[in-house]
């Protein structure tokens, strides 16, 4: 199991509290619905980027 998957199944209550307060999930549109929500960018030289 990868490290991210371990986080997915983690039972840490402190982690759950962090997740409850997290911002809305980014970019979840399937490829077949390309215009339903915008694509995402990993570019980090603009401070309000995803």
């Amino acid at each position: 199991m990868g490290i991210f998957q371990e986080l997915v199944s983690s039972r840490s209550e402190a982690l759950a509290e962090l997740l409850d307060a997290a911002e809305s999930p980014l970019g979840e549109q399937p490829a077949s619905e390309a215009d339903s929500s915008p694509p995402f960018s990993n570019w980090n030289s603009w401070s309000d980027s995803d």
């Binding site: 980014l26 970019g27 979840e28 549109q29 399937p30 490829a31 915008p38 995402f40 960018s41």
Partner: peptide, 10 residues
Amino acid sequence: EPASPLCDPV
């Protein structure tokens, strides 16, 4: 498995 978002061509 989360749906795959597409990368912006920027």
